[in-house]
Design a binder for these strands. Structure first.
Lengths: 158, 158, 158, 158
DNA sequence: TTTT
DNA sequence: TTTT
């Protein structure tokens, strides 16, 4: 009934931008979030948390975030599950963010930028077939190897 | 660097209470948290989110929470991973809650109770060997089948 | 750049429903949120936190919430300030909630209700001049005595 | 019963560090948090939110935060009230933070620093009477002019 | 493997 | 001005 999460961490890689068959942008990336304590050998571990963003925010993330950058994500925790190729149920957890803040300006130029994303403008890309349009969904947006698509635009929560 | 989550949902089962080899109480349960939208067939789905609590809060959860009850959890999202018996890496996500609120009083009696847990009192159970002491940790506190213990008291974050 | 708050508490009074000159619904109420500790005389104090909701959510709150009911609010903390009649600047803090959960079903009937609000449907009331339409904004939506209106519909954040 | 807030913003001034009569450190500062929308004249306004931190975290904030720096605060919203010198009740809202993250390293040196505070170490300053010890509490930790102290160490929540 |  |  209520599900709200806020994270601050660093991207483990550049974001990946894909499009649904209907041309809706989706970006995925992973934040490394340091734990607030050290383990028994004195090292600080991190949680690696998958983030998904949609539409205009997805495109902003793809444009402005890079591996190593510090970012904040605000959204909801989602637990999906699917059957893998060995017929076993696999659970995937990810944060569906409706708000991402870019906490580092990217030391090359970009002055005047406040480190903010440009809100939640919901632009929808056309079917122009550019170089990114071959990136389509599979069962797990964080998986590399393509499973048949089972996420359609009808699933979109907003 | 910052990791904060708040959930409200219903328990899918009664909590499970276990103890580390050193006698520290741990309770685990799962909250069904309704999604804020319906899917393409008009049904409201839920996310099933694992919760872990420690010490006095664990014992309060075990005492006052039951299957179906409404509860709020406030904590941090943790992603653990371990190698399963087939040598494959499995990812487990869970919310380590430092605050749980009991939002239903349990319609039988219990008047005067405010629906609150009793804070974070950190009582530590002795090694009396009572009927619960055979519940020990394995790799995944949410798994039923016993793997060798790899969580010791040294891991405790607080 | 990021501002997210989640509260659970009890309403100190029934909500108040008003409308902007353009017919947009606004509900205000106060949540008493118990502090997580007791003071030096052993009493648990509470924070009394003003909540504002808009549009369809406002009307749902007015319909389903009552004095004493338990509710959760999720939103953003806003600090407004205005000059009072003595020319002094007054600061008003309130939570602008985009999500409110009704955690008690209202013991009279209402079965089938899940305790949820009906989402964020943004219905806008017409200017029919019914018995509530004389409730208009002043400087402080939580104040009783009418100051000249300075919140117009242009201020609406969504 | 539950009260959790996360903010990211910039300090409007350097933090102020004071001590209670018993030598417990308290730091106060204000975060300017941009609103997620622009007003009717196209300007982005901000909320100016008071933050209070205690003990070791207070001393870290005083040492590492400066006017203009970006920071995240995680805590609880508190609404205090007191009677001012004209016998009028004044309401003060502030976030009591148990976690503050320094999101900018302070471009001078300090390499190797992760931008994190050093946790919640609760050091307590002795009564050495150094140059800061004349900074004592009054009714409102954010007020400049001294009212008689009414916050004693007994009020400390942790 | 899931709750109302 | 405050709720159970």
């Amino acid at each position: 009934m209520l599900n709200r999460i806020v994270l601050i961490g660093r991207l483990t890689k550049d974001p990946e931008l894909r499009y649904t068959p209907n041309g809706v942008a989706v970006a995925t990336f992973t934040l490394a979030v340091d734990r607030p304590f050290t383990n028994q050998s004195g090292e600080r571990e991190a949680d690696f948390i998958n983030i998904v963003t949609w539409r205009g925010l997805a495109e902003n993330c793809a444009n402005y975030l890079k591996k190593g950058r510090l970012a904040a994500a605000d959204g909801r925790l989602q637990i999906r599950n699917y059957e893998n190729n060995e017929g076993k149920r696999v659970y995937v957890s990810e944060v569906v963010a409706d708000n991402v803040r870019f906490l580092e300006s990217g030391n090359s130029g970009q002055s005047g930028n406040n480190g903010n994303n440009g809100g939640q403008g919901g632009q929808r890309r056309g079917q122009q077939g550019d170089q990114q349009s071959n990136q389509r969904f599979n069962d797990d947006p964080f998986a590399k190897d393509g499973q048949p698509i089972d996420i359609s635009d009808d699933d979109l929560p907003f």
